[in-house]
Design a protein around this nucleic acid. Structure first.
Lengths: 67, 67
DNA sequence: TTAATTTGTAAAATTAGCTTTACATTTGGG
DNA sequence: CCCAAATGTAAAGCTAATTTTACAAATTAA
């Protein structure tokens, strides 16, 4: 499961810390997701996409290796 | 966070057990998500949507109460 | 180039998702 | 009605997500 959080953050000119605040998780959680250390809950994934003005499908994508 | 798994299962004429098999989780996990007892990981949510021939955004939706 | 901001990690503790087993209730077809 | 299939739950145990604290490395701005 890949994500475009970093790209979309750049597009929105927002830091990891700011994104974290807006979705109410710690900065480390955002960093860990962004760097692929772990996978967010669906709730968090949708909130992140929302804050980045994208749909969840635009920000998160399944990979062949996920099956 | 609401989901339309039950509706989409009906549309695809597939049981909880069959859906569970296809996304490789237990039947109870599907049931628990469907009945709102817990929220799936983003990975599982996207797989479920995929098996149901829908996008994640079509199957899962944020609610005002999520914020 | 220095200082401040941002990002990357790590470890320990907590929380929540998921599995397995097990059983009760509901629904659908004959 | 009756049986089989499907669904709803529950508890115990395991795994993965998330928090908190803390610090180092990298970027950016002045």
């Amino acid at each position: 499961m890949k994500n475009l959080i970093k790209v979309e953050r750049a597009r929105n000119n927002i830091t990891q810390a700011e994104l974290a605040d807006k979705v109410k998780v710690s900065r480390q959680t955002i960093n860990s997701i962004e760097t692929g250390r772990f996978i967010p809950s669906a709730l968090l994934a949708f909130k992140i996409a929302n804050v980045l003005h994208r749909t969840a499908d635009e920000v998160f994508q399944l990979e062949d290796s996920d099956w």
